[in-house]
Design a protein around this nucleic acid. Structure first.
Length: 476
RNA sequence: CGAGGAGUAGCGCAGUUUGGUAGCGCGCUUGGUUCGGGACCAAGAGGUCGUGGGUUCAAAUCCCGUCUCCUCGACCA
């Protein structure tokens, strides 16, 4: 018991010290380690496996939607960045620049991509000639670099992994429709794969992507009530098409500029699911992305027949397509329980002499931390059903929490009280930048997304008639 | 980039005030007993004290520089 208390202290208290809890958990569960260069992280096998599962799920969705994968270069000529005025202004402060190579100073500095709109715009400009070439829809899985001031594993690092999809359409309507379609795809993915409820909607002018006409975002509520931008889609209009000469000859013979859009999610999603589902014992991983979905812990494993029975169970579950780990290390059962709970494995099966004798097994579910004795007949069916139930329960629990923590406000004081209480605040906004800035100054809260269901009467700041209903929150 | 805290064995820390042989717990290795919520015994291995310079007979300890991490603000996927 004394040992157990020591273990519990291994990670900070989730309620009173959430930031420390987060860093403790990501490092101690071996998701990441810090790299030697400021702001860099190593994504270790246990963390990378989550990313691979996210990739697989998203990639199949993109492909089902007709998007093709490609790969564009890491280095971008500096001159590309300056072709779109707002874009360069937005990204200039955070780009890393290569000035020397091959032992010589380069004639033109090269930017390490912070995002690839420019170089992809350049290439699309070469590839698009006719309306028959459209739409052009490509995606790349890659790394990007943004030199941020303060960094945190997964949430904000100098280099991170993501996917960025880029499309060109002949008309603005089609490009905008794709922007919304991808937002919906992200939402479906977040809900069904990450079991994570999100708010989606359009971003304000202040919060939109540098160079976009409109930006849409997906925001998730973290355990401490702060918001994490978990995905964005951007409608660019003809801004980038004009900057990079993405032109085509239309059916009517006229030369026209295309309309572009882009969309991306990053390894930040891993941080999002940790801060959405995690609890006092550590990680709670959604079954669809958990690197290990079921861990089998043998009890009295040196007794005859125990390990043999565990291996049979392991094979049965693997054959059902499950990701299974049999922990036959020399650690004590109690040690294994705590370790795998901290690592967030959805289900644990304890199998000992008593169970084997009785034809049963003990199933522990990570989200409820409850043990249940079940027959070991039809083990695979039982486990599959239990994993599905846990996924649904995780989503339901997170959604109920988010909904209970969205509060209305009619005044700045109410808004401040709301965000201080760890809530999202739903309030009216006149649409003026001055009011948005005032909210930030007064309550350190920003407009996360605008709600499609606009029903607020007056602006929370100035009291004039509201033109939008906005979710305000403190954000990561 | 501003304010605060921290870098000593793989991890967590003590030692720094007052300079004088490098310590503790966990982990690791080997052997044995254990095993249903972080087991126990025995024997071992492991550190140029973040890094560069300075003061001194002598520096983990004092002085200057520098790098990294954590927390809070301003900027951001």
């Amino acid at each position: 018991m004394a040992k157990n208390e020591q273990f519990v202290k291994a990670i900070a208290d989730i309620e009173t010290d959430f930031p420390q809890w987060y860093t403790d958990v990501v490092v101690k569960t071996k998701l990441v380690d810090y790299g030697p260069v400021k702001g860099t992280m190593v994504i270790r096998p246990y963390g990378y496996a989550i990313w691979e599962n996210i990739q697989r799920e998203l990639d199949s969705r993109f492909k089902a939607n007709g998007v093709e994968n490609a790969y564009f270069p890491l280095l971008i000529p500096m001159s590309f960045m300056t072709k779109e005025a707002e874009h360069v202004e937005g990204f200039a402060p955070e780009v890393a620049v290569v000035t020397h190579a091959g032992g010589e100073k380069l004639e033109e500095p090269l930017v390490v991509r912070p995002t690839s709109e420019t170089i992809i715009g350049h290439m699309f400009g070469k590839w698009v000639e006719s309306w028959r070439d459209l739409p052009l829809r490509q995606n790349q899985w890659c790394n990007v670099m943004r030199w941020e001031k303060t960094t945190r594993p997964f949430l904000r690092t100098s280099e991170f992994l993501w996917q960025e999809g880029h499309s060109v359409y002949a008309s603005g309507e089609e490009a905008e429709a794709e922007t919304l379609r991808m937002l919906a795809l992200y939402r479906e993915f977040a809900e069904n794969v990450l079991c994570m409820p999100v708010l989606t909607g359009r971003k304000t002018e202040k919060e939109k992507f540098a160079g976009a006409v409109a930006t849409y975002g997906m925001e998730a509520m973290m355990h401490d009530g702060k918001s994490l931008q978990s995905g964005t889609t951007h409608y660019m209009g003809q801004n980038f098409a004009k900057a990079f000469n993405v032109q085509f000859t239309d059916k009517d013979g006229a030369l026209k500029y295309g309309y572009t859009m882009s969309y991306g999610v990053s390894t930040r999603l891993i941080g999002a699911l940790i801060m959405t589902h995690g609890d006092a014992r550590g990680l709670v991983l959604p079954p669809p992305v958990a690197p290990v979905q079921v861990v089998i812990v043998p009890i009295a494993q040196k007794k005859e027949g125990v390990l043999e029975a565990c291996h049979v169970l392991e094979e049965t579950l693997k054959n059902a397509g499950l990701r299974v780990k049999l922990d036959d290390s020399d650690n004590s059962p109690g040690w294994k329980f705590n370790e795998w709970e901290m690592k967030g494995v959805p289900l644990r099966i304890e199998l000992g002499p008593r169970d084997i004798e009785a034809g049963k097994m003990l199933v522990f579910r990570r989200d409820t931390c409850e043990k249940q004795e079940v027959s070991s007949e039809h083990a695979a069916e039982t486990v599959v059903a239990e994993l599905a139930a846990m996924g649904n329960a995780l989503f339901a629990r997170a959604k109920a929490r988010m909904q209970s923590r969205i509060v209305p406000a009619n005044t700045l004081d109410e808004l401040l009280a709301g965000v201080n209480g760890g809530n999202f605040v739903r309030a009216g906004w006149c649409g003026e930048r001055a009011c948005e800035d005032k909210v930030k100054e007064f309550a350190q809260a920003t407009a996360r997304v605008m709600d499609d269901h606009h029903d607020a009467a007056t602006c929370v700041c100035c009291g004039k008639p509201a033109r939008h209903t906005v979710f305000f929150a403190r954000a990561y």
